[in-house]
Design a protein around this nucleic acid. Structure first.
Lengths: 172, 172
DNA sequence: GATAAAGTTGATCTACTTAGTCAGGGATCT
DNA sequence: AGATCCCTGACTAAGTAGATCAACTTTATC
């Protein structure tokens, strides 16, 4: 469940394109690479993929560059993720609904479908325009209200390395 | 955002252990491997990891096998995922809150934290006991009520390969 | 105590993916 | 013309996923 470098880079590049002034101005790949600290050759590959998926357009030559093919409010994070990384969620190669775990493990299928739905509830709702504005949709922003969302869970291996050994200390 | 084969196998194995009759009976690794269709040597590795994390215990010898170290209602999917795959969500190697995208892309950080929160809202709530019972917690099951959760999104590349070319056909 | 079932450890292997580079070519503007 | 910039495809180096194997130790039954 990791966000790949490619997706991170592509998303940040899209935000840069959407934030370019004046709107619709072609932005050079190297310009984005420099301001976002992305390897420029690598970024060019990602932009080419986004272009094939018709999320951005490009122009060559002296005043060339990239610009959004679609208004930023119509591009979701999920759109970009699917172009760069493929399906949002799959369970070792299969789409969750095609996945049929045998016997008593059958309900794990519903679990993975719920996981996918949860991912969609964020990634299909947040648009590039939201990110440029710095304001996530209220349903998504609600997730951030819980201060617990901001803290990292301890590594389960580190937790056992130092054993205070209190029974049922604070599991869950 | 893919569920690894390892996590799928480990979760299914845990469900098998929880469902074993009578409860607490040692279950042999090969028994699980056979009933779940998991390569047995590979499964043994995963069970060893779960044992080191103290989610299961094992016994050797003629009547040996594996059993849960903790009541199934106290083991969440997230617990297993963290043992097998590491942190639930990280953005190309970094924990989301340690990730600091520069400039105009800064709000992408909140996005990834929201993604992590969404994953937690499912994976930290569903326990092995829920899966054995075949009933997910109501907050999670609610995600499955929407029939849309059960259908796969079309591949964006396939969508462009066959171009009906209607402007703004159904872009979300 | 012999035997066999079972877990334990560590090495190894292949295929794939990720992250990134490079060179050569084509398009466009000044 | 020349500078600038995008396009394509091949390429590589490192890491991970998924899986297998052999040798060893522990334990239960006969």
């Amino acid at each position: 469940m990791r966000v790949s470098a490619s997706l991170d880079y592509a998303l940040r590049a899209m935000v840069e394109l959407a934030a370019a002034e004046p709107v619709g101005r072609p932005v050079k790949a190297d310009e984005i690479a420099a301001s976002q600290g992305i390897p420029s050759r690598f970024l060019a590959q990602l932009l080419a993929e986004l272009r094939r998926a018709e999320l951005v357009r490009s122009g060559r030559g002296y005043a060339g560059g990239y610009w959004l093919a679609v208004p930023p409010a119509d591009i979701t994070v999920a759109d970009i993720a699917r172009v760069i990384d493929g399906p949002l969620a799959d369970v070792h190669g299969l789409s969750p609904e095609l996945f049929g775990p045998p016997g008593v493990a059958a309900p794990t299928r519903e679990l993975w479908i719920a996981v996918r739905a949860a991912l969609r509830s964020v990634m299909e709702k947040v648009t590039i325009a939201d990110l440029v504005a710095g304001a996530l949709p209220s349903a998504v922003a609600a997730l951030l209200d819980d201060p617990d969302a901001w803290i990292r869970r301890p590594d389960p291996l580190a937790a056992q390395a130092d054993p205070p050994d209190q029974l049922g200390s604070d599991r869950r």
